[in-house]
């Protein structure tokens, strides 16, 4: 069961410590999971079991789908991998800029 997410929405994993924030998302219903379980607004009371193959999330990294139609910021790292519609989304390569302040 999907949902439309607006930028700024924070989602918590229900199976690990991962928390992500939506930076950009298409105006369509998305099913966002972490560690095989749907993510939710607000931290869960207790963590469930992780399923599938997981590589973990890293705080501060940005995650995007192959078409780069959506982007999430990991605001708290954890053990699960984030997926949208069943596909794992990946770390977006950072462009290095010189320090400007």
């Amino acid at each position: 069961m999907g949902q439309i997410y607006k930028p700024g929405t924070k989602l918590s994993s229900t199976v690990c410590k991962t928390q992500i924030m939506v930076l950009r998302a298409p105006a369509e219903e998305l099913e966002i999971t972490c560690g095989g379980a749907p993510m939710q607004v607000g931290d869960p009371a207790e963590l469930g079991d992780m399923t599938g193959e997981n590589f973990g999330t890293l705080v501060g990294k940005r995650y995007t789908d192959e078409a780069e139609s959506m982007e999430f910021l990991c605001t708290r790292g954890g053990d699960g991998s984030v997926g949208v519609g069943g596909y794992v989304i990946d770390v977006k390569a950072a462009k290095k800029l010189p320090s400007s302040d």
Partner: peptide, 15 residues
């Protein structure tokens, strides 16, 4: 907030 966050996300990598 959105302006300043866009500036940070556009120019700085976390940590």
């Amino acid at each position: 907030h959105d302006n300043l966050m866009a500036y940070i996300f556009g120019t700085v990598e976390f940590m």
